[in-house]
Design a protein around this nucleic acid. Sequence first.
DNA 1: TTGAAAGCGTTACCAA
DNA 2: TTGGTAACGCTTTCAA
Lengths: 347, 347
Amino acid sequence: MADTTLRDIADELNVDISTVSKALNDHPKISDTTKLRVTKAAKELNYHQNKIAAALVKGASNLIGVMVPQTDEMFFSSIIRGIEEVVKNSGYNIIILQSNDQIEDEIENINILFQTKVDGILVSHAMETQQFDHYRQIIDRDIPFIFVDRYNTSLDTGVVAIDDFKGAYKAVSHLIDQGCRRIAHIAGRKHVHIYKERFRGYKQALQDHDLSFRDDMVVESNLKLEAGRTIARKFLKMDPRPDALFAAGDRVAMGAIQELKKQNISIPSEMALVGFSNEDFCSFVTPTLTSIDQHSRKMGQKSAKLLVEQLSNDENKKISQKTLLNPELIIRESSLQSQSGENNETF
Amino acid sequence: MADTTLRDIADELNVDISTVSKALNDHPKISDTTKLRVTKAAKELNYHQNKIAAALVKGASNLIGVMVPQTDEMFFSSIIRGIEEVVKNSGYNIIILQSNDQIEDEIENINILFQTKVDGILVSHAMETQQFDHYRQIIDRDIPFIFVDRYNTSLDTGVVAIDDFKGAYKAVSHLIDQGCRRIAHIAGRKHVHIYKERFRGYKQALQDHDLSFRDDMVVESNLKLEAGRTIARKFLKMDPRPDALFAAGDRVAMGAIQELKKQNISIPSEMALVGFSNEDFCSFVTPTLTSIDQHSRKMGQKSAKLLVEQLSNDENKKISQKTLLNPELIIRESSLQSQSGENNETF
DNA sequence: TTGAAAGCGTTACCAA
DNA sequence: TTGGTAACGCTTTCAA
């Protein structure tokens, strides 16, 4: 059954097709009576606007491209949720692309976005991306474009992320407050800006509390679970060994917990632990894991809002604004020296 | 900077626009030399096909609509991942819509999908949907359409899900094997087909092992964490109390674990536990949680494959096939009476 | 207030 | 093998 078109409605009502179009779009110069007749007929014929045709003539697809490394990482899926919520209410839809954390896929995806003629783009870039020329094309084409979370400073685009420096700073300061003095850091890849920031926050917190920074107390990793196990083993062999671990991710922290438990190291008294991201499971594990909440859903919402705003801006004035959300330290058992069971305060 | 069009390439090369189109589409009747010239010019001018225009004339958008309750639930985000992988390799893209488990959003989303002229639709329906007329429109319009996981039997569509009956049966049989005799069930909403199936599997397993079924051993719930706590409290008050809990979801099982631990009930010796979905955190909690793996990513892949297949089928022969994947019991500490630490076998 | 017609960028058919 | 042209369904400008 072929879809109803404007033509069908026009024929039905013996008016011109352009009249129908205008009536449906609530054009001011169409009489209320015709508007009524048209909307009625449209409903009867079960008409749905063909957005493809409209997009072609208007030069705007009402599509927003969203690219993340993978949809099935809690952090990204919740960003996506936030984006979808906002975007839909503004009449846009999102098309989702995954980079699988690989630059080749990223490049290919960007081409797809060009073909799809998306009106705007939201990206969290691949872990292994160190060279951002393919993103430059987006800017050259004047497509509104905002980085979410993982961003690159060399490009003049909008950015929505959390203040990773501050998050790390809060985490480490908290550990120091709890009496920890030899705090090690499980870092992410140092070419990724956000991980660099977390590392910087770690160092700064140490310095501000007159603790010395030591190179051998920092290990770079891919932040996966298995890495946490290995790295924990490594730290346990040190003498004196660290009395706390600040991990740049929850999964890698989880791996460390597993290893510590296996070796019967008590958490937090022998070694305290703070993760980063505040994934669901932080409150499920034993001991529950202190972490930094990144407000991922809000991050998605904010980036989408900014983008939509930019899109509705007549004078295509580029918003190359950087928005850093405030990270939140969620204190749980893994770092609380003064034990008090089900603690769960927020700072 | 306006995008390059076929016209630009044609002008550049002094050939007709239709020649360019054919050359780019590798049409057999175009000489290799012109193909070469055209592709070269296209690259130089940085041409990207306008899929919107192509979609309009071809009557196919190359878009596949995906609707899930929420993207930020592990299970759905991993379905989405699977879908995206398959679909991209077939030249399609996905647009994502969330129903927020509400029927109003569902109806609105379906209208959006009509407007976007998606070529096919993949849906996991909202928890609260009990009336499926809005889905019937999709069928009436001959849009290929497959249910993923949450499906309805009254509609003649394709279905990809796991065999929930079998999953529940495996879970309960396993508990019985472990010596449990009073097995309670935390069920999902009984109007949702998959939860009905899990309930059926539970009953059947009891019956096949000569255990009697009791109404008061089953509680229906929304499967959220908090519900798990409440329901566990309720079961703990029974006399004699259950020696095992089979939950239709991991989160609700998690809530139960929390309550049991709080009341110092030892797991699994005093009460064994099996969840459903095998979420990440199952292997993180203490004790690790036995669960049923649903192969969600594979589910996404399978449904996408089926849909794409159907789309490329010239004679629009509808695939109203039902594919049930085999659920996998992942045995962990929460149900293993013979304790052996880090057990993690697969059946 | 309504109608006619051009045009968005492609594809596909028929003619050359 | 290539060119011309209609058509996809809609919006928009100008004329009536």
